[in-house]
């Protein structure tokens, strides 16, 4: 019979390296037509980080996302970056990008101020324009300002900046210190069906509420969460590198290393928790790794809820789950607890 259960798990996760310096640098160059080029040493490994960085640069410069072209991942061309690791790109490289764009913008403002007859600090950049705060009709297209800066004033609007998350080393005896600049938080709730005769677990639904600070691009945040959950499901139920007694891997292939296929994925509901971190670029923190942190815990709690069996070692394969069910029965649990709703099995 299939028994349904639900499980909850929450977590916290830091952004960036543990104390160790993990700087990023960035350069933003505004072209004479008001478009911009961002140089970053980070690497696009699928997360969409280049899109996010373009959005951050665009926001700071007051232009559109596709006005920013990102050049990345070339040590001859791009500035130092600690890389696509530790969920740090949006926060650390994002901060560097914003600061670099701010410097380029400052040059534009210095050029624009006399053209508009105001002080630079009275200006703002919006909608591809540089305009006077509270007097948006007094404006110049950013292209005109950039062109003027480059070819009349001879002051190219280029900004370079770097960012390293502030930390305080941990005491070696007590571990006390400030190892990370910021943390994100999340909760996932899993709903599963457990076949109490075979131990098979089917994950039906996962609700994921994640904090990433400001979501620079909610669509990409959703993608990260959905993907992280698939990894979490593999960790929870299926995946394991096995060794023989001589230390050689038994299953180094995708036939016998069981990762989730499209058929193994549940319905996922993503919720982005409103949050703003004043230390991040436009309030952003990060989202990459945390997405797969609470999934296994939530699923294992749901299994426990469904059949009253606690599996203490991952992955909770069907065989382990069945063994745990049998054990919990032996331990005098006359009735399976937690079976709020027993639903019919396939054979019934």
């Amino acid at each position: 019979m299939k028994r349904r259960g639900r499980g909850i798990a929450c977590m916290w996760y830091p952004i960036g390296f543990t104390v160790a310096a993990n700087p990023s640098a960035a350069t933003v160059k505004v072209n004479e037509d008001g478009t911009a080029t961002l140089l970053t040493g980070t690497v696009e490994t699928g997360q969409g980080s280049l899109t996010v960085l373009a959005q951050i640069a665009a926001e700071e410069l007051g232009v559109a996302t596709e006005d920013v072209h990102v050049v990345s991942a070339d040590t001859d061309v791009t500035p130092m970056d600690t890389g696509a690791i530790a969920s740090r790109t949006t926060y650390v490289t994002g901060n560097a990008t914003r600061l670099a764009a701010e410097k380029a913008k400052a040059i534009l403002f210095n050029v624009a101020a006399p053209m508009l007859g105001v002080r630079p600090d009275q200006l703002e950049a919006r909608d591809r324009k540089i305009q006077v705060k509270r007097f948006p009709q007094r404006q110049l297209p950013i292209s005109q300002v950039a062109h003027h800066a480059l070819f009349v004033k001879g002051d190219p609007p280029i900004g370079s900046a770097s960012f390293n998350p502030p930390t305080v080393a941990m005491d070696p005896e007590t571990g006390q210190g400030l190892p990370f600049a910021t943390y994100v938080y999340a909760t996932q709730i899993a709903e599963v069906d457990v076949d109490d005769e075979t131990g098979e677990v089917e994950v039906l639904r996962i609700v994921a509420s994640h904090d990433c600070g400001t979501a620079i691009n909610p669509m990409l945040v959703e993608g990260q969460i959905e993907g992280g959950i698939s990894m979490g499901i593999g960790l929870a139920l299926q995946e394991e590198i096995l060794f023989d007694d001589k230390g050689r891997q038994i299953n180094p292939n995708l036939t016998n290393y069981i990762m989730p296929t499209s058929l193994d994925m549940p319905e996922i509901e993503v919720d982005i928790v409103p949050s703003y971190d004043p230390t991040g670029p436009f309030g952003a923190k990060g989202v990459g790794e945390p997405t797969s942190v609470p999934t296994a815990a939530a699923i294992l709690n749901a299994i426990h809820d469904a059949v009253g069996a606690r599996v203490h070692s991952l992955p909770a394969t069907a065989e382990k789950v069945l063994a745990a069910i049998k054990e919990s029965r032996v331990q005098g649990t006359k009735q399976l607890p937690g079976t709020r709703r027993a639903i019919a099995g396939p054979a019934a």
Binding site: R6, I8, C10, W12, M170, G175, Q176, G177, L178, P179, F180, T182, Y183, Y185, A186, T187, Q188, I189, E191, R205, V207, A208, S209, H210, D211, G213, E269, D271, V273, P274, S275, Y276, D277, P278, T279, K285
Partner: peptide, 25 residues
Amino acid sequence: SPTGQVLHSVVVRESLERAAERYGW
């Protein structure tokens, strides 16, 4: 935190409540 860090922009409760609400806990 366990390392003595004062945490800011903490929304773990919010995430718990929102997830529970969304799920129909």
